[in-house]
Design a protein around this nucleic acid. Structure first.
Lengths: 326, 326
DNA sequence: TTGAAAGCGATACCAA
DNA sequence: TTGGTATCGCTTTCAA
């Protein structure tokens, strides 16, 4: 290339990087630009970054995020933040294995840092020192570390509080809580939020039935049957949108109308579900995109800095499935 | 590092790459290994690949795949194929822009090739020569090129045929086809498949009502209302699972039971939807993961070879929403 | 205003 | 069995 334009490598570098601090004769510049154009020549970024020992690649270790039905948004968020900073994402999905090897691989490839991403809001196996923090955990936390330093998580407790408060505000008092699995972290947070709301409203906690499912639609279906076999709450707080859908189907089968007879609130604001069903679901949004975006931003801003725990806001999205009790 | 072990760079290279063709004294090897361990030293892949001018990175240009509710599986598939070949994926989501810039960026970063991935099964803007084929299109095709060479697409026609044939086999004759948008490629293929099945079964095409929606759940709901206001088909063939869900909700509201009164078949086998609702949906599976996997494989096997068009099989998944008419 | 030379971190070839 | 040297494609002094 340098030869093609009849100049030295240095000059080519100056021109192609558009370095205004180095004066280059307009005519020379033009000659180089023209040569590059006709040869389809572009700078090799691998060589560039090797020379400068800089990196414009963000490593992502995904724990099933890509194949999770609606958490790909996390990837999209990281993507977006990376792009804005001139980076690209290099992603490895560990498909059930631990992430240690993937992290090493990514580091060998010279990434700026690595964010571990999971949709499950659960612990993730890490068998190594987490010393120098070029790693961040979003939607998950390292087995050793806990939910503190270096994590970006949804504020599920506040989200749970909002869901319940919304119903309480509408005048509901006989609630049923069809939550996620008993041991699940997020499920626990959401239920704690329910308690917060109950306390704030001075409502009677004994009037809310509590059952636990597995986040699957069918468990929502089953639990709703169970609840209405035994009693007659005016509103259902579901562990997630899947369970809400199951509950909705169960109510339909009983001839109960939503929201006329029973109000339902979900959790997740799952794309192509919550706003797609009829009636559209009132729910709490799990801000996957924002979480991914935030994590990527934090890591690129200061890969070495130990970020404190971030809790991302989960807004209540009011749609058609909730109304005041009659 | 070489200094730390008291040997030359070359020897370090031999040992760390475990090159058995070059004899290295066991003692020297051990000394090097030990030094690497204590220093936490690992080979720099960027430098390695620069020197060898080889690449172990697969470029992915995503057109909303990451944020698509259930096509992330495509990414997972590419991931998996890449991993199996010792590659990692570098992905850029273009978020509505065309992919030209992203492709250039990826190429500058030295990827083996790039696969364009979209969940939409539609055309994707490409404003440049597609000469030397280090690019492949999965779930989409270049505006200029069409659905031929260099594409990996689902075999929607055969899928559509299967859905209809299944119903026909069960004895249904009064069908309603609630398809996707009129101009949509996939929707057209699926409808052509319906025609194939009708022809094969010697069924009367005039007994199948045909309406077109927008793949959204609400359009399925609306179209189902419309169909049952006018007549009484015994089975519904829906453009996708979303529309099937909408239709199911509409039937529920009318007191019609699935599959007892009406059978429903969807399309996509959307995760966390098709197998989650009640009754579980009989549907045709869109093999996102396989498509991504296949595309990645093809590209890594021979980045320069022009692959012919691949059609990936869409299997029929029979679940609870279909039965013989009474 | 431009070119020559050094060096980023590796590998390959040829000597020793 | 090991080391020296050139090289991959680039950027950055330093001289000319």
């Amino acid at each position: 290339m340098a030869r093609a334009a009849g100049v030295s490598q240095s000059t080519v570098s100056f021109v192609l990087n558009d370095r205004r601090d180095i004066p280059v004769a307009a005519e020379t510049r033009e000659r180089i630009l023209e040569a590059a154009r006709s040869l389809g020549y572009r700078l090799n970024r691998r060589a560039q970054e090797l020379r400068l020992s800089r990196s414009t690649t963000l490593g992502v270790v995904s724990y099933g995020v890509a194949s999770h039905p609606f958490a790909g948004a996390m990837l999209a968020g990281m993507q977006s933040a990376a792009r804005a900073a001139g980076h690209v994402c290099m992603v490895i999905d560990v498909e059930g294995h631990d992430g240690d090897e993937a992290v090493a691989d990514l580091l060998d490839r010279g990434v700026t840092g690595v964010v571990h991403a999971s949709a499950g809001t659960g612990p993730v196996t890490v068998n190594r020192e987490l010393g120098e923090t070029r790693e961040l955990f979003v939607g998950c936390w390292p087995t050793a570390g806990g939910t503190g330093e270096g994590t970006v998580l949804p504020d599920d407790r506040e989200g749970g509080r909002r869901a319940a408060a919304h119903l309480l505000d509408l005048g509901h008092r006989d609630l049923a809580f069809l939550g996620g699995p008993a041991g699940d972290f997020a499920a626990g947070e959401r239920e704690a939020g329910l308690d917060d709301a109950l306390r704030e409203a001075g409502a009677d906690p004994s009037r809310v039935v509590r059952l636990h499912g597995d986040y699957g639609s069918r468990s929502g279906y089953r639990l709703a049957q169970e609840v209405f076999d035994a009693g007659r709450p005016t509103a259902l707080i579901c562990g997630n949108d899947q369970m809400a859908l199951g509950a909705l189907l169960a109510l339909h089968e009983r001839g109960l109308r939503v929201p006329d007879d029973v109000s339902i609130v979900g959790y997740d604001d799952q794309e192509a579900l919550a706003d797609a069903i009829h009636p559209a679901l009132t729910t709490v949004r799990l801000p996957h995109r924002e979480m991914g975006l935030r994590a990527a931003e934090l890591l690129m801003k200061d890969p070495a800095g130990v970020p404190h725990a971030e809790r991302v806001d989960c807004p209540l999205v009011v749609r058609e499935s909730t109304a005041s009790p009659r």
